[in-house]
């Protein structure tokens, strides 16, 4: 039998189920509509593509710090965690369940390229229904957290969904955005962006840049325990969906355009934000990075 690992496990390398088990209180996770229900995609077979018994997402109930929560984990290894009809409906159902059960929070472990193109229309519709359900849950007073630490990061419509949540927690290795590097290169050409430039990709979409902008509220190591600590912290800090709160957010985002709107890439933005030696930032570990960015790091209101 497997002994507990002596070294910290990687959140990024873990399966969606493993991430949920590591995040929640030991033994507390109960899956809803699990793989034995065989609720697979109804659309992939016609395209001669294999299905997954859970359609690439695990949803269920558990506890965090002794309090009841609902949680979902996207499985990035299946079709890049992309959202199809069933996958999205499981997320929407979970968020609707929150309206009835009133858990302490809903935790979304996002690992996705966005809409599943093989289910195009049903995919975008599913993302929209998830987005509405996230905001309904928040409006009803249930905090929703986005935890982004998988190999796919979080892109497309789900990148917008992440920012509809109360807070975003990211690892340095994760990426968050709307149009990914391949999409931009394909539509605008390599002169606009060279998707094979890995360092540039991380300077643009990676955790450090997102945390410096304030797009990610907390940057953590690629370690399940670190994500757990951050989740425990951020479920206690919901952001109200009120006019004053959204006007503060409006001002925050307007100020970013004034200050950084002329910046075409990450290091430009870091310099404009007040970082003394921006080119060093990608090389630093998290404590050193925190010290180096200091007061230049923006925080969402």
């Amino acid at each position: 039998m497997t002994a507990p690992p002596a070294v910290p496990r990687s959140f990024r390398e873990a399966s969606a189920r493993r991430r949920l088990l590591d995040l929640l209180d030991p033994g507390s996770f109960r899956e809803l509509l699990g793989p034995a229900a065989r609720e697979s995609s109804p659309h992939l077979a016609a395209l001669d593509l294999p299905v997954s018994f859970d359609d690439g997402v695990v949803v269920g109930a558990g506890r965090l710090g002794g309090e009841p929560v609902l949680a979902a984990g996207q499985e990035g290894r299946f079709l890049g965690g992309a959202v199809g009809e069933v996958h999205g409906a499981k997320l929407t159902g979970l968020l609707q369940r929150a309206l009835r059960e009133r858990p302490r929070a809903v935790l979304l472990l996002l690992d996705t390229g966005g809409v599943r193109l093989q289910e195009a229309n049903a995919g975008i519709e599913a993302v929209s229904e998830v987005m509405r359900a996230v905001l309904s849950a928040r409006g009803a007073g249930v905090p929703v957290l986005a935890l982004v630490g998988g190999a796919w990061g979080c892109f497309g419509g789900m990148g917008i969904v992440a920012r509809c949540c109360d807070a975003v927690v990211m690892s340095e290795e994760a990426r968050l955005g709307l149009s990914g590097p391949d999409v931009i290169e394909a539509s605008r050409g390599v002169e606009e962006l060279d998707a094979s430039d890995r360092a540039m990709v991380w300077r643009t979409w990676g955790g450090k840049h997102r945390a410096l902008l304030g797009e990610a509220d907390e940057l953590v190591e690629d370690d399940p325990a670190a994500f757990r600590r951050a989740a425990l912290e951020w479920v206690r800090r919901p952001r109200p969906l009120s006019l004053p709160a959204l006007e503060r957010e409006q001002a925050f985002l307007a100020r970013r355009l004034e200050e950084l709107g002329g910046c075409a890439d990450g290091p430009d933005a870091w310099r404009a934000a007040g970082v003394a030696e921006p080119d060093r930032l990608p090389l630093l570990d998290l404590p050193a990075w925190s010290a180096a960015v200091g007061g230049a790091r923006r925080r969402r209101p």
Binding site: M131, R132, L135, S136, R138, G139, G159, I160, V161, A162, R163, C164, L176, G177, L178, S179, V183, I184, S187, R188, E192, L193, T204, W205, H209, R210, L213, E215, L241, S242, L243, L246, E249, Q250, L253, R256, L257, L260, G261, C263, A264, D265, G266, A269
Partner: peptide
């Protein structure tokens, strides 16, 4: 808009804020 600048500035965050305003 698909551009590097929009992604650098966090377009997903701006659109997420728009969705939240509609919900409000």
């Amino acid at each position: 808009r698909m551009s590097k600048r929009d992604e650098v500035l966090g377009l997903n965050g701006y659109l997420g804020h728009l969705a939240a305003c509609v919900e409000l």
